[in-house]
Amino acid sequence: MTAVLRAEWIKATTLRSTWLTLLGYVVAVAGIGVGVVASVGDVEAAQPDYDPGTIAFYGLNFGHVAVIVLAVLLTAGEYARKTVHTSLVAVPRRGAFLAAKLTVGAVLVLVTAAATALATLLLTQAVLGAPGVSLATPGMLRATVAAALYPTLLAVVCMAVGMLVRDQAGALALLVPFFFLLSPLLELVPVLQRAAVFLPDRAGAVAVRLHSRPIDVFGPVAGLGILALWAAAAALLAWWALRRRDA
């Protein structure tokens, strides 16, 4: 298994696109977070329903586009380049191949997202000044950890979808509109919002907030748990399909 992990690590890290998408994530999350705080931070902070987590990590939604692109390049990208044939000839145990691929992708996103979450918190609160919070503020440490775990688990969901769809354009056309537009919009539809919060990204977003909203039916830890269940279910489905299908 270590051999397979090393191989997937070399594959992921020798592609420039991996580093570019991770850089895109950092820029989107930290940049948009700082931008939002700098422009409307003081106004928002004066609102009665102000949530420091939501505002500081406002860029997460945009960062997810980078997460989706990375996840699709690492998975469906193998099919686009036919390198999946080479991969499966080298590693015929498909479960090990998939597990190594998901692990490497998740580790890359986790490390990047954790560093980005911390930097974003520090930068946004410095810009905010007096109303700013810190890791010592109750719930803020948890929200920051969530801001690292949420994109990581979402990456697992997206990598699994990439392995299932096996087509870069198809996977992107499915994932980007869904997580960037559809899912956040569903949360705004009154009759659907209590169901919509169970969607992978919405459940993860709950964990980044400091305060629960009226529509929330579960807390932050449960939110991450629900997202983890989505990730596990998607990975299992991808494994089942990978074992059954011709490469």
Binding site: A7, K11, T83, H85, T86, A90
Partner: peptide
């Protein structure tokens, strides 16, 4: 050893890196 189709190496990877990951995968 198998040669399937010549396009089965990622175009953005160098030849050495292509062989490096293959070598790693089989220790």
């Amino acid at each position: 050893g198998a040669l399937l189709d010549s396009s089965a190496a990622h175009p953005a990877r160098t030849a050495r890196d292509h062989l490096r990951w293959l070598a790693a995968s089989n220790a």
